[in-house]
Amino acid sequence: MRRWAGGFGAAAVLAGIAALAGCSGSPAQPGPVEVSRSACGDGWTAPQAGPQTLQVRNDAAVTMEIELVDPATGTVFGELEGVGPGTTRALPVNFGNGAYALRCAPEDGTPFVGPTVQVTGGADRPGPAVVPVTNADLLGPLKQYHAYVADGLGTLTGQATALAQAVRSGNRDAAQQAWLTAHLTYERLGAAYDAFGDSDGAINGTTAGLPSGAADPGFTGFHRLENGLWHNEAMPALGPVADQLDQAVQKLRTSFAAAQIDQNDLGLRAHEIMENTLQFELTGRTDYGSGSNLATARANLAGTRAVLDVLRPLLTTRFPGLKDLDAWIARTDHDLQAVAGKPLSALDRQQRQRINADVSELTERLAPVAAIAEPRRVS
């Protein structure tokens, strides 16, 4: 049971694209622009330059994805996802001089581009456009990230076995250190959790939703062991818990070899990893005694960096904010390193505010990555 906050879905992706298009509140163009299986942009006359809102109506009997594109290059200026049959949706745009067209993608058909309209008499295009990322573009990054996770799981299996041995030895201090080492390794693999299936709940589940809380038999894995190690539970009683965790990790390593990471997950998880860090780690909601939330936050940051590293070839030419994003990641890492080894409760007010501000701002700066890296059908 992974702790995804769930607040960053299609609506937020659409908002990210709108932001990239330089849009703001604007007057609507009179009359709807109509799309269907056979036409993409009926009723669209040459728009004037500047900000405005297109009202786009889907006359087809199927759901459509609709994008405003440069017909020559395919770059995207705005999009509407999941426009249902008979539905009219608003598409805010900011037109500069140049050629534009709508690209329509029926959910069960091939995308096609409508007629071109030409905008003149205004300024140059005011906002960056986004060259679509396709499924083929993501094959390389997905392969690289799968290898990164497989390597991490290889490391984790050895650490989980060492953790179980430390618990069995009865040495609580050694077991606590082994727990922290293994748990941070797992927390660096954040973009693959959906591919882990039920194993994630067995390995890193919390008490959320469990009727008996920490005493519930469904509470297993790292946090169950953390609760026992830091609350003086008898070491012999923790042996089976550690063994169960070790077995779950071994099972995951084996099953992941044939698992696939969803193509939508890379860009989306880069944002959600830090969103969950803000919601769960920096509030202490996942602290079961170790006081390691700040260390976990830094491990999550390393996991975000790993995602960005494999996406970087796609982002370099598509995301003007990448350099600033890198700088903010470096700032956040520096500030987390400065409080390394401390529990949240040991931070003074200024330190707490700075860490919260770092991660909040970083989460916002990561949002466009999800929009840009979302694979699109272009043919």
Rank of each mutant, 00 (worst) to 15 (best):
R224D: 08
D246K: 15
D265N: 14
I261L: 10
Q159I: 01
G205N: 09
L268T: 14
D137L: 10
A136W: 02
P217A: 11
N171V: 06
T161P: 07
A164P: 04
G201V: 09
L163E: 04
D151Q: 14
A147F: 04
R188M: 08
D216I: 06
L266S: 11
Q165P: 00
Q247H: 15
N135S: 07
D173W: 03
A202I: 00
L180W: 03
V149H: 03
A164F: 03
F196A: 03
K143D: 11
A160S: 13
R269N: 12
A259E: 04
D198S: 12
N171T: 09
L225C: 12
E187H: 14
A208L: 09
H223R: 10
H231S: 13
Q250S: 12
Q159W: 07
G197N: 07
S169A: 15
Q177W: 03
T155N: 14
A257K: 14
H223W: 03
D137M: 05
H271E: 15
A202F: 00
V241H: 06
G158M: 11
G221A: 12
A257G: 09
Q279H: 05
H271R: 15
A208M: 07
G267Y: 08
Y193F: 14
A259D: 01
A166C: 05
A270W: 06
I203L: 04
H223L: 13
L156N: 08
Q165C: 02
Q165F: 07
G218W: 03
G158L: 02
Q244G: 12
M274E: 14
V149F: 08
A208W: 08
P217Q: 09
Q250L: 05
N135R: 15
E233H: 09
Q260G: 01
L163C: 07
G218N: 14
R224W: 03
G190T: 09
L138R: 13
F196W: 14
A258S: 15
W230K: 05
Q263H: 10
Y193S: 01
R168L: 04
N135K: 08
A237L: 08
E272C: 01
V249F: 01
L153Q: 06
P240I: 11
G267P: 13
Q176F: 02
A234C: 02
H183F: 01
A136G: 05
G197Q: 05
L238E: 00
R253P: 00
L139V: 15
A270I: 07
N171D: 15
H146T: 14
T157I: 05
G221R: 11
A164Q: 06
V149Q: 04
A166Y: 07
G239N: 12
L278N: 12
G140N: 11
P240V: 06
T206R: 02
T155Y: 00
N232Q: 14
R188W: 01
D151W: 07
G213Q: 08
T207R: 08
A208C: 00
A166I: 08
M235R: 10
L184T: 12
G239Y: 02
R188A: 07
N264F: 10
N276L: 04
G221P: 06
L229K: 15
A147V: 12
W230R: 02
L210M: 09
G228H: 01
R253S: 01
P240G: 08
L252N: 02
A160P: 00
L252Y: 00
A166N: 10
F256W: 03
I273S: 04
G140F: 03
A164E: 04
L268A: 11
A248Q: 10
L268W: 01
G209E: 03
F219K: 15
